[in-house]
Design a protein around this nucleic acid. Structure first.
Lengths: 134, 134
DNA sequence: AGGTTATTTAACCGATGAGCTAAGTACATG
DNA sequence: CATGTACTTAGCTCATCGGTTAAATAACCT
C-alpha cells in the first residue's frame, strides 16, 4: 500500500543521512560514489537511500555511461513548503503582519461593498502583534 | 537512542493522521476526545500520535481538570522551515531573483574592496523569502 | 572476450512504528 | 465513597526500515 506523496516525502526527510545527501546535492549534481564518500556505510545502503529519495520525488537521476548522476528535484520540496505554509502564521511575524494587512484590506473592501456589514469573526488567532523582528 | 530534533520532527510529519491532527489544531486548541473524533481509530492510537507530536515539538499540552488540551507549538515548524530554506532557490522563483540581486550587490561590494577577489559561496543562509501569498 | 568500475538487487537481521485490547490513572461529581 | 469521563500505559502483533554481505547488472577499456 503506497503512502500518499507528502507522507513519503516527509518520511524520506526524516533520516539524517538522506538530509545530508540532499545538502550535498544542493551544491550540484553528482554521482553515487561521490555521495557515498562522507558516510561510514556500505554502498548498497546509500543506494537504498537514493531510491527512497527518488521515490519521494526529492531527487531525480540521469544516466551517463556507468554513472547515475543525482540532482535535486524541486517539486516535492515545493509541496512540503506549501503544506508548511498552512502553519506559517504560527511562527512568522512578518507573515502575520502581512496577514493582518490583507485582512484589513478585505474588511475595507467589504465595508465599501455593503454598508450594513456583518463581520464574520473568522479571525484566526490571537491579535498580539506589535513586535518587530530583527 | 533519541534522534536529532529535525529527524523526529520530520518523522512525526510523515504520518497522515498526525498531519490531520495538526491541521485541526491550526484552527485552535482542543481536547484529545475532540481530536480523535474524525478518525476510525482507537483512543490509545490517537494518544500515541499526540505523544509523538509532542516529542517532536510540534504541539504542546496543558492540563485543565481531566482534559489535556493540545495546541500547535511553533518552534519545530520554524526549524523545518529553516531547513527547507536551504533549498528554496530550487523552486521559488522570487527567491531566486532576490538571491541573484544579493549576489550582485555582494560582488560589487567585493569588487570595490579588493579588485582581485575570488567569489566562492552562494548566499543561501540569509533569512530572505520573497514569498507572496494568495 | 575478459577485466575494471559504478551501481543495484537479493536475502537476511534487529529495531522501530502503527495499530489493537485491556487495564490503569486522574479528576469531577452525585 | 462510587461512578463516570478523559485520557495514558502495558503488552501484544505485524509491517516497514536501516543496515549488512554476497551476487548481479551495466557500461567502459583494453
Amino acid at each position: 500500500m503506497p503512502l500518499d506523496p507528502l507522507s513519503s516525502t516527509f518520511a524520506a526527510l526524516a533520516d539524517p543521512t538522506r538530509r545530508a545527501i540532499l545538502a550535498r546535492l544542493a551544491l550540484g549534481e553528482t554521482s553515487v560514489m561521490e555521495l557515498a564518500k562522507p558516510f561510514d556505510m556500505s554502498l548498497p545502503a546509500i543506494s537504498k537511500h537514493l531510491k527512497v529519495l527518488e521515490h519521494a520525488g526529492l531527487i531525480s537521476r540521469g544516466r551517463e555511461a556507468q554513472w547515475r548522476p543525482c540532482r535535486i528535484a524541486p517539486a516535492s520540496f515545493k509541496q512540503v513548503d506549501g503544506w508548511l505554509g498552512n502553519f506559517r502564521r504560527f511562527w512568522d511575524e512578518s507573515f502575520n503582519r502581512l496577514d493582518g494587512l490583507l485582512e484589513e484590506m478585505k474588511a475595507e473592501e467589504a465595508a465599501k461593498a455593503s454598508p450594513r456589514s456583518q463581520r464574520k469573526v473568522r479571525v484566526t488567532k490571537e491579535k498580539q502583534r506589535g513586535r518587530t523582528r530583527g
